[in-house]
């Protein structure tokens, strides 16, 4: 794209730095949240420019979409408190200048030095070279669910921990019901939810040979669930034990751990699948991980442990 491309990148960089500043420093919380949503949007465009469509997909689905909705609905609990005056914090806290600023600068310097010493070509060639043994045709999926599956296991573990932490805060607040009931919302939910499911399934299927996979698919499906919740639908919970919810919430983590341990017991390394069944194993892992991620994001969005008795007065859809 030549000169135009450079102008584009410069504009993108300026907007990103400005939005990051706004998202962390704006006195008004709503402005900070909107800045964060737009930051996620432009960050995805930046990943597109860096020719990393996999990260762009994940950033668009999780950064701009699911997290944005999460923060927007957290606002109704935070709004009465108003934003803190950052100017006062900035002036009053002398520790910021003696302790935190030097510490952050030292960390940034150390990270830069470490990145500088990384071996030049990286591991890209090694990963693409071993692609035939991985069971999938797309290098990123092969890295995520085969070569470095341990990282993915830990990422899902973080999500499980987040859901456990949110649910242990107490029962879900009653404000989970729409504050402003509108006849268009249930219609929109009914029209759009099948599209969310379709796109999630498509992304999951794409993951085996092109950018896609469990994380974007799970985020899109979870976002569809959030849309249905906003449209007035009730979460399907019949008992205090949350029925099959707990099984699906933990299935992604449990199945991945099971695959890793079976691989280790069968004589290989931790997370070493036999090349003959690698393709099927990755498919199973990807589907369960996608379902778990979708329900985990949805569970975090509920802002507390859902209870069947608490939502009898909610509008049914």
């Amino acid at each position: 794209m030549g000169l135009v491309g450079q102008v584009f990148d410069a504009l993108l960089a300026i907007a990103l730095v400005w939005l990051a500043w706004q998202a962390t420093r704006a006195a008004d919380l709503f402005r900070a949240v909107v800045s964060f949503i737009v930051f996620g949007l432009l960050m995805a465009v930046a990943w597109v420019r860096l020719e990393a469509p996999d990260i762009a997909l994940a950033e668009a689905a999780i950064g701009a979409g699911a997290t944005g909705a999460l923060l927007l609905s957290a606002l109704d609990r935070l709004a009465p408190r108003r934003g803190r005056s950052w100017a006062r914090v900035w002036r009053a806290d002398a520790r910021t200048w003696v302790l935190w600023v030097p510490a952050v600068m030292a960390l940034a310097g150390a990270l830069t030095a470490a990145a500088w010493q990384l071996p030049a070509p990286g591991l890209g060639a090694v990963a693409t070279g071993a692609l035939e043994q991985s069971g999938v045709d797309h290098a990123v999926t092969a890295v995520l669910l085969n070569f470095r599956a341990l990282d993915t296991l830990l990422e899902i573990g973080v999500l499980v921990l987040a859901a456990v932490a949110v649910w242990s805060m107490g029962p879900a607040p009653a404000a989970s019901a729409p504050v402003m009931p509108s006849p268009t919302l249930p219609m929109l939910g009914r029209t759009l939810f099948p599209v969310f499911v379709l796109v999630a399934a498509y992304l999951l299927w794409r993951g085996s040979h092109a950018p896609g996979g469990a994380f974007p698919a799970g985020a899109v499906l979870g976002a569809g669930g959030i849309l249905m919740l906003l449209a007035g639908a009730q979460p399907w919970i019949r008992s205090a034990e949350h029925g099959p919810w707990r099984a699906i919430l933990s299935a992604g983590f449990a199945v991945m751990l099971f695959a890793a341990i079976v691989g280790a017991l069968a004589g290989g390394a931790f997370f070493e699948y036999p090349a003959a069944i690698a393709s099927h194993a990755i498919l199973v892992l990807e589907v369960t991980a996608g379902m778990s991620i979708a329900l985990l994001l949805f569970a975090v969005y509920l802002r507390g442990e859902p209870h069947p008795a608490a939502d009898t007065d909610r509008q049914r859809c």
Binding site: I37, G65, A69, L192, I226, L227, A231
Partner: peptide, 13 residues
């Protein structure tokens, strides 16, 4: 898809 979700979240919450 997700821009629609942000809009709905904003309006209803």
């Amino acid at each position: 898809l997700l821009a629609a979700l942000a809009c709905v979240t904003f309006v209803s919450r």
